[in-house]
Structures are given as C-alpha cells and as structure tokens.
Simulated assay, not measured.
Amino acid sequence: MAIAVIVDYNEDGLQFSLSILKSIGHFEDVYGFSCPDEACCFIKERGCDVLFVETEVKGLNCFVLINKLRKIKQDILFIIMASNEDYAYEAFQKGVIGYVLKPLSLESIAKTIGKLEKLHRSQRRIVP
C-alpha cells in the first residue's frame, strides 16, 4: 500500500478526486491539497508515492511542480489530471506515468492504477 496525494485548485474537483481514490481502496492514505506549496511541505515531511496533479494549480504549471517535487523525492510517480489533451505529449516526454482526462471516473482511475501495478511488476519497484 502507498500514499497518494492529489493537488487540484478546484475544491469540488479535489473532493471528488479524493472520494474516487479512497473508494478504490488501493492506497494506504490519500491526501488532497488545493495549494501546491502545502502539498510540497506535506510531501517533504511525510512522503508520497503517487501524485495526482491538475495541469494548472493557482498559477503554477504542473511541470514546475513536478520538477520541484522530484528534487524532494525522486521516486514519486506522477499522474496528470487534465480537462483536455494539450499537455499529454509533454507529460509523457517528462516521464509522467499517467494522464487522466477530467471529469475523473472510477474506470479511468482504475485503469491508471492498473498501469502503476504493471510498472511495479516490470520494475520490481515498491509502488502501489
């Protein structure tokens, strides 16, 4: 089991994402933040295995946040949540493991978690 963190500027979207991830029961703990700085502080103190992040959070591009977090903890797996596919190519070029279109659904999250499990088996890494 692993720790997941969600960063989403929209409080309703954040609560919805939290409820989906918690209902799947795949993660030991799931935490949500609407402020990227708060998420960074939390991750620095408690750690994180998987980060779900909106493309833009309070004026901060997701790739800036991802680069900042990689300096804190190199083995975080990143999944971008987006309203469209505009960032998809760049995301995969930068090693993001998943790209989920909003509105999130149980099916889209389950599919993404399936990718994480496949990665775990193929790399023998400790991931969810």
Rank of each mutant, 00 (worst) to 15 (best):
S83I: 07
K71F: 07
E28C: 11
G25I: 13
G13W: 00
E45M: 06
I113W: 04
A82P: 10
L18V: 10
E85Y: 05
S34W: 06
I43F: 12
K68A: 01
F63H: 06
G95E: 11
T112K: 11
Y89S: 08
S34E: 09
G32R: 06
I72N: 08
C41Y: 10
Y99K: 12
L77H: 09
K111H: 07
A39C: 11
E38C: 03
D12M: 12
I24C: 15
A91I: 00
S23F: 10
E117V: 09
E107C: 00
I97L: 15
N67G: 12
E117F: 14
E117H: 15
E45D: 14
E90Q: 15
F78G: 08
Q15N: 13
E38Y: 00
S19P: 04
V53C: 02
V53T: 15
A88Y: 06
G114F: 12
K73Y: 07
I109G: 02
L51K: 03
F78M: 01
G13P: 11
I66D: 05
G59N: 07
L65S: 10
F33E: 08
I80G: 02
S105K: 05
L101Y: 13
D75Q: 07
G32P: 08
D37G: 03
A91M: 07
V50I: 15
E85I: 09
T112F: 14
L101A: 01
